[in-house]
Design a protein around this nucleic acid. Sequence first.
DNA 1: GAAGATTGACGGCTCAATCTTG
DNA 2: CAAGATTGAGCCGTCAATCTTC
Lengths: 177, 177
Amino acid sequence: MDRADVAVEIWRAEHPGLDMTMKKLGVRLRWVTHHLERELRRELAAHDVEMWEMEVVMALRRAPGYQLSAGAILRQCQVTSGAITNRVARLEQRGWVRRDVDLGDRRQVLVTLTPDGVARANQLVALKTEAEQRIFGGIDPETRERLSDDLRSLLLSIEGPIHPDEASGCFTYPPKD
Amino acid sequence: MDRADVAVEIWRAEHPGLDMTMKKLGVRLRWVTHHLERELRRELAAHDVEMWEMEVVMALRRAPGYQLSAGAILRQCQVTSGAITNRVARLEQRGWVRRDVDLGDRRQVLVTLTPDGVARANQLVALKTEAEQRIFGGIDPETRERLSDDLRSLLLSIEGPIHPDEASGCFTYPPKD
DNA sequence: GAAGATTGACGGCTCAATCTTG
DNA sequence: CAAGATTGAGCCGTCAATCTTC
């Protein structure tokens, strides 16, 4: 009997016979994700890092040359362009990233991790891994892999496959609304 | 090849042999949840409702007598007490809820759905169900149920079982931090 | 003193408007 | 005109301090 079972009990009483699988699935997804983020937030807070810093730094850490355009960052972080402008500005002030105009297309701004930024990013990888292990370590590996595979199917059904070739488009978000 | 496969490719290249299951699991969880919330947000926006309104109203809709203490709402919505005070105040202003002092324990405030609030809540149930079907409808029922079951195991391993008897404690959040 | 709710300062995000470049 | 980034206004959440009631 988990949180989702209890939550849908009221609906089952009102509308017996209805399939509650999707409702339960939604509740469980939200809560597990919530716990994961909470755990990560705690881990980071102990090292004076905040979630938004990690999101940007990790996106750059994965990029070739530790460099991404502002637009590419916003697609990975799932926030608006205004938010990215502010985030990058704050990171620049702390000396973790550098901002340059793209000479090929002067509308774009290229954000690059500084050596300090790379060092910081490498710390964060470890912290993130610890948080993940603390949250996901409680179930047996078999269940964990099945879960990951099924979530993969679901994610594919929502946003379709990602082609690794189109490096720049890897994380592009569906058109707009 | 989904978003998670692409994202961990850089780590696989740097540290071959490492188990990436947990990392992928984390990425997929966050993105699926993100899509679910985005879909729900769009659905609600079309009816001039915002997420925070729905969270509070739905929590009350499920409660016996459509009534919950401010603290109970806070535990279901996963926000701080200050946020709840504001949310309830705004809902009260729109006439969806009523606020009364608990006569049994005058420290507590009891929040109750008004008839207008109940009507509104019933609309929202339908909207939420539509969003869920749009997000979860793309995979076969078998996978969906397995996914729900495995997430149940994971959620139980994180927060333990919930006893339906302790009605008031159903959604209580672990001590503090 | 502890628990529950409220308040206000502050931070970060969204949104729309604007500017620049293609 | 379209695309990318920046700006400022407004909203909402967190956090810490405060007040009331147990």
